[in-house]
């Protein structure tokens, strides 16, 4: 083992399949890497940081990931994904506006600044529709509403939540789809692989029990996923898409600290998602 300080770091407070696989891939490539727990991290403004010069951000908490990236970038550290990409990906409204500005297909979305305004926005969007928290993952608190009475009840609960952010309401027209969505892993501008995520529930998050099946990467899917990742500035991205019954693809969201266990398992040894990320990290450290 080299006595020199590692040039690479992996920032993670929770080591899941993905972080463990990436750390192992870096070791297989002979890259000296420091595992950094952000719970023990503090950065003084304007001061140098003695840690690695290139850091992969795998922190599970959005806000801790966002501010860790910002703090490390302030010291001149290169962070993948960047603070800017994490900010856009972590906020569904910012993601939607970025996708729309780029002209990429994405479900019709409205931001209502109060729960009361959301009820009117839903009338204009039409039912069924989906109410989503601005920040959150794994399908948590994503609610499908089918009529005004149901929407009013959900919005009343939102209004009662203490966080001011909960009163900013993101509403989206529901996209007719099969019982599955599509996840494409994009690393360094290249689509590494894709999976269908199938569920008998309407939410098709793997975290909610959806099953991953290999999805062929055709040119349209590849181009749209790569464009979506580029739009939000993500070097590493899990792009979630829906395909309507007519075959049209639409981008739902882009995940900046992507989980890929289901994707990896559905591909066996045909792809190595962790190694693709490790290779990009090493390349970026050398750039």
């Amino acid at each position: 083992m080299s006595s020199a300080a590692p040039r690479l770091g992996v920032l993670a407070s929770r080591v899941r399949f993905e972080e463990k696989s990436i750390l192992a891939a870096l070791e297989r490539r002979g890259a000296a890497c420091l595992q950094i727990d952000p719970r023990a991290l503090s950065v003084r403004a304007g001061s140098p940081w003695a840690g690695p010069r290139t850091v992969l951000n795998r922190e599970v908490g959005h806000y801790r990931a966002l501010y860790a990236a910002s703090a490390l970038e302030s010291t001149g550290t290169k962070v993948l994904n960047t603070t800017a990409a994490t900010a856009v990906c972590g906020d569904k409204w910012q993601t939607s506006t970025a996708l729309v500005a780029r002209g990429l297909p994405t479900p019709e979305t409205t931001l209502a600044l109060t729960p009361e305004a959301a009820l009117e926005a839903l009338e204009q969007l039409g039912y069924p529709a989906v109410i989503k928290p601005l920040v959150g993952s794994w399908g948590r608190l994503v609610t499908r509403v089918t009529d005004p009475a149901m929407a009013a009840a959900v919005l009343e609960h939102l209004a009662a939540l203490p966080s001011p952010q909960s009163h900013i309401v993101y509403v989206q027209r529901e996209v007719a789809k099969a019982d599955r969505d599509i996840r494409v892993l994009v690393v360094g501008g290249r689509a590494v692989g894709a999976t269908y995520r199938r569920s008998d529930q309407w939410r098709t998050n793997v975290a909610r029990g959806a099953v991953s099946e290999r999805c062929p990467l055709d040119p349209d899917l590849t181009a749209l996923a790569v464009a979506a990742a580029d739009t939000v500035g993500a070097h590493i991205a899990g792009v979630d898409l829906l395909q309507d019954p007519d075959g049209r693809l639409t981008v739902l969201e882009v995940n900046d600290r992507v989980e890929f266990r289901g994707l990896q398992q559905s591909h066996g040894t045909d792809i190595d998602a962790a190694d693709a990320i490790a290779a990009l990290l090493i390349k970026e450290a050398q750039a």
Partner: peptide, 11 residues
């Protein structure tokens, strides 16, 4: 003991 899952956890 592992920390409880927080509202902003995810990917």
């Amino acid at each position: 003991l592992a920390p409880e899952v927080e509202e902003d956890w995810g990917e």
